[in-house]
Amino acid sequence: MSILKKIMTAVRGGAREMGELVVDANAVRIFEQEIREAQTHLRKAKYDLTDVMAKAMQASRQIQSLHHEIDEHEGFVVRAIEQGDEALALSIAEKISRLETDLEEQREVQVTFSGQVERLRSLVSKTERQIREFERQLSMLKTTESVQKASNAIADNFAASSSKMHSARDSLARIKQRQQEKFDQMSAAETVQSETMDESLTDKLRSAGMIQDKTSAKQVLARIKAGQG
């Protein structure tokens, strides 16, 4: 079963109660042991592989040298026939026949070793894949274990401070109040800014003589004079 599925099953089974861990220490130890065993297998398979590869190479060299020897002796037979020495030719031919038997044997040995090399190679890569998979699962187990410890510690703390803890409604009210305050501050700042801009515009208009203060001393005096007249 995959680790995620085990975790899910444990959560559904209610093992996620506070303080109870989904991943027990045994599971981690078993995984670590399995990884160590797989690594031992891998080391042995790699050793066997080099051994068999060496033997296969040895057989190949033997085959080459037998071919060479057979070619050489076939030359001797031709020369013996040319010299009319039938008896010598026959004994050389017998030697060739023995060499060919040896060659056949060596070929069989080489085929067997090559087969073993293939088998061991696939075993090595299979074991390597298995180790990687174990390590991935172990890291998932360990992460789950430590994350769960941490989340439980945090959750225990939620529980311990639940008297101080606000309900979602309280929290929301506070958050909204704070947002409103920020909004009010921003609109106040905007108002101040636009008022300042208004004032500066009025100043400019005044200095350009486009608007006049109704309450300037000159105007007051003019109004009073007009009233007297």
Partner: peptide, 15 residues
């Protein structure tokens, strides 16, 4: 204040 963050450190992560 109403929504404090809780932090914990594991072997590989800060949660």
């Amino acid at each position: 204040e109403e929504i404090p963050a809780f932090l914990s450190v594991t072997d590989s992560q800060i949660i």
